[in-house]
């Protein structure tokens, strides 16, 4: 099976990421709780924001921002679900 480089998913992902991420549904890797990210518990500090599972408090995702870059980590989420319409 041949593979192509990551540019091949630019089109589908452009559609995928053009949404309000807080409406996305995520499954917690820790306890299996499935919920919209808007329902997660968010701990904010100047170092970054940490989203924790509303059920078990495990870290779902992180957001770190510098002046010129941002990092969005999904360490506690296996996949996110987005409504297409």
């Amino acid at each position: 099976m041949q593979h192509v480089d990551g540019n091949a998913i630019a089109g589908p992902l452009a559609e995928f990421f053009a949404f309000d991420i807080t409406t996305a549904v995520a499954r917690c890797n820790g306890c299996g709780f499935v919920a919209e990210l808007a329902r997660a518990m968010v701990y904010t500090s100047p170092a970054g924001s940490v989203l924790r599972c509303a059920s078990c408090e495990q870290v779902l995702a992180t957001l770190v921002e510098s002046d010129d870059r941002a990092w969005f980590g999904f360490s506690g989420v296996s996949a996110i679900e987005v409504r297409r319409r």
Partner: peptide, 16 residues
Amino acid sequence: QNGYHLHGDPWKEERY
């Protein structure tokens, strides 16, 4: 794992 530097020496500004 989420953006910050592996070492973090403030005198070298190893932030990210």
